[in-house]
Computed example of a mutant assay.
Amino acid sequence: MVRKRVIVSGVVQGVFFRDTCRREALAHGVSGWVRNLPDGDVEALFEGGEDAVEAMVRWSRTGPAAAVVRAVEVHEEPVAPEAPSGFDVRPTPRDGR
């Protein structure tokens, strides 16, 4: 199991990035969440098998057809003792990241 958090920049809000990310993650068996950030970026947390998480990181570099991804920051994180189950679309945080 691995856990990675990504920050995706570019034209990534209003292009079905979050919903498409959720569907892709479920198809790959990846748990976690995705959300819009107030600055226009999208943040996602992927947890699962190494190959499946890497597939989601690769997907994040292009996103859905209408997205224009300019940059992706990838942060490796320790696997949580209680892994998330499923994949959620979370609300935008009100006070930054």
Rank of each mutant, 00 (worst) to 15 (best):
M1P: 09
M1Y: 01
M1W: 00
R3K: 11
K4S: 01
K4Y: 05
R5I: 07
R5N: 06
R5F: 02
V6I: 13
I7N: 13
V8P: 05
V8F: 11
S9T: 09
G10T: 14
G10A: 14
V11N: 00
V12G: 04
V12P: 11
Q13V: 00
G14T: 02
V15F: 02
V15W: 03
F16A: 12
F16G: 08
F16S: 14
F17V: 00
F17L: 01
F17I: 01
F17Y: 00
R18H: 14
R18T: 08
D19F: 13
T20R: 08
T20A: 12
C21L: 02
C21M: 03
C21I: 06
R22Y: 08
R23H: 06
R23Y: 10
R23C: 04
E24P: 02
A25K: 06
A25P: 01
H28A: 11
H28C: 11
H28I: 01
H28F: 06
G29E: 13
G29Q: 08
G29R: 04
V30T: 02
V30G: 03
V30Y: 04
G32I: 08
G32Y: 03
W33R: 03
V34K: 04
V34E: 04
L37K: 02
P38T: 04
P38K: 05
P38G: 05
P38R: 12
D41E: 15
D41F: 06
V42D: 00
E43R: 13
E43C: 11
A44M: 12
L45V: 05
L45D: 08
F46E: 00
F46T: 01
F46R: 07
F46N: 07
F46A: 07
F46K: 08
G48T: 04
G49N: 09
G49M: 09
D51G: 03
D51W: 00
D51E: 13
D51V: 01
A52N: 08
A52F: 09
A52W: 08
V53Y: 02
V53P: 01
E54K: 06
E54Y: 03
A55K: 12
R58H: 12
R58W: 11
R58T: 14
W59G: 00
S60Y: 00
S60C: 15
R61Q: 13
R61V: 01
G63E: 08
G63L: 10
P64T: 08
A65D: 02
A67M: 06
A67K: 02
V68K: 08
V68F: 04
V69E: 14
V69H: 14
V69Y: 13
R70F: 06
R70Y: 06
A71Y: 12
A71V: 05
V72D: 10
V72K: 10
V72E: 12
V74I: 11
V74L: 13
H75E: 05
H75M: 09
H75N: 10
E76K: 06
E77R: 14
E77M: 09
V79F: 15
V79T: 09
V79P: 09
V79W: 10
P81E: 15
P81F: 14
E82N: 14
E82Q: 15
A83V: 03
A83W: 02
S85E: 11
G86Y: 07
G86M: 04
F87D: 07
D88Y: 10
D88T: 15
V89S: 06
R90H: 12
R90Y: 10
R90D: 14
P91V: 15
T92K: 14
R94K: 13
R94G: 14
G96Q: 13
G96W: 11
R97M: 15
R97Q: 12
R97G: 10
